[in-house]
């Protein structure tokens, strides 16, 4: 039989009915000398202990110790020939640490002013307004119009403006539309996809799109993201060039 007195953990040897047959020195320090294991199981843990102790190897229980009426332990149970070895490993120090971390998080949460959420929504609305203004529509003649793009070429720019621009183009019976990149700074990868689909749709409604004001860096970024800057695209230099070229034709 294992020598329980010198077991390095608080440990108990119990019989089938959880009566204590032997215990380690550490167990005595923590729990004194109870008759039954159940004697020091907290009321809120008793049911759990009864249900699990025989068929699970590891579970948490709240136990009464000499020091404290309730302390959290992880209990390891091994049964052999109707005898059980129960090891009790204190969880509190670990839990305390975790708990204090959470406490900090909670305090931070309390500070998280939910006003921030409101502000965020306001900001998003303002952003969306700005985006709407970032691609105005300029009719130049009965057949030519210009869409000067501003800001960063991102998905939203098109999400917000696409429908309206397309219907204006279609209703106006334009032949050409110049998409001017002069005001565009950054080009985002997802913006390129959105742009490509916008471009296709313009073609679909029977209008020829022309790109102008592309900076070398734009072309590079567009190509890098698989936008085919090939022959089928009308690319001109500046907006002025584009207008004079297509206004005449």
């Amino acid at each position: 039989m294992v020598d329980f007195t010198h077991h390095p953990l608080p440990a108990f040897l119990v019989d089938h009915d959880l009566n204590i047959k032997g215990q380690s020195r550490l167990a005595t320090e923590l729990f004194s000398k109870p008759d039954s294991f159940l004697d020091f199981v907290d009321s809120g843990s008793k049911q759990k202990a009864l249900e699990l102790i025989k068929d699970q190897e590891e579970f948490e229980l709240v136990l009464n110790t000499v020091e404290s009426p309730y302390m959290l332990f992880k209990v390891f149970a091994r049964w052999h020939d109707g005898e059980g070895q129960l090891l009790c490993v204190r969880q509190d120090s670990q839990i305390m640490e975790l708990s204090s971390m959470l406490q900090m998080q909670r305090d931070r949460l309390a500070e998280t002013n939910f006003d921030l959420l409101d502000k965020k929504e306001e900001l998003e609305e303002a952003m969306s307004k700005i985006k709407r203004l970032s691609s105005p529509f300029l009719p130049i003649s009965s057949s030519l119009s210009v869409i000067p793009l501003f800001g960063s070429l991102d998905e939203e720019l098109f999400l917000i403006n696409e429908q309206q621009l397309l219907s204006t183009l279609q209703n106006g019976n334009y032949e050409y539309v110049i998409l001017d990149f002069n005001g565009i700074g950054e080009i985002e990868e997802r913006g390129v996809f959105a742009f490509q689909s916008f471009y296709r749709m313009i073609q679909l409604i029977g209008v020829s799109p022309i790109l102008s004001g592309l900076k070398p860096q734009h072309v590079f970024q567009l190509m890098e993201n698989d936008f085919n800057v090939d022959q089928t695209f009308h690319i001109t230099g500046s907006l002025k060039d584009a207008i004079s070229q297509y206004n005449l034709s």
Binding site: E60, L98, L109, A110, F114
Partner: peptide
């Protein structure tokens, strides 16, 4: 769930913080 040994007290802590957040919000 703790009584059924399906979760630990550490999980309870997280659930508490999350519940607290929902309450505040």
């Amino acid at each position: 769930l703790w009584e059924e040994n399906k979760i630990t007290v550490a999980d309870e802590h997280l659930a508490t913080t999350t519940c607290d957040y929902v309450l505040s919000r």
